[in-house]
Design a protein around this nucleic acid. Sequence first.
DNA 1: ATCGGAAAAT
DNA 2: ATTTTCCGAT
Length: 132
Amino acid sequence: RRGERERVERDRGGGVQLWHFLLELLGRGEGGAIGWSDQWGEFVIRDPERLAQLWGERKGKPHMNYDKLSRALRYYYNKRILHKTKGKRFTYKFNFSKLVLVNYPTVPHSLPPVLPHALPHCASFPPPSFPI
DNA sequence: ATCGGAAAAT
DNA sequence: ATTTTCCGAT
């Protein structure tokens, strides 16, 4: 039946993407595992294994850990969703300018077609005082 | 801790 | 296409 697969996927969190999940926790001010830093778009993973556990629960992957989660984050580097803040432990930064450009068709449509579709559904985006 | 290749899974 | 899994190198 139509919707069955989607339902099952949703029930085990199959549809959600990692960076959506991160923005969700950050927007909610989840506090413990992950939080914004003082730099715009930058976040610090305060409890890597806890974050991995939460991510694993969402995805139905009981053996998720930070080693594997962080590999997924590194795949975001080339996709220009994230980059690492070098020298700051467990610290990454979102490419908000790119994200915003994709979401504001007013600007040239000629930039690297980087980002997905689901942005409007993210809990709190753009973050509190992001300068559009 | 962080990186990125390779292969498998979804 | 986006992870997940595994792992050797830095």
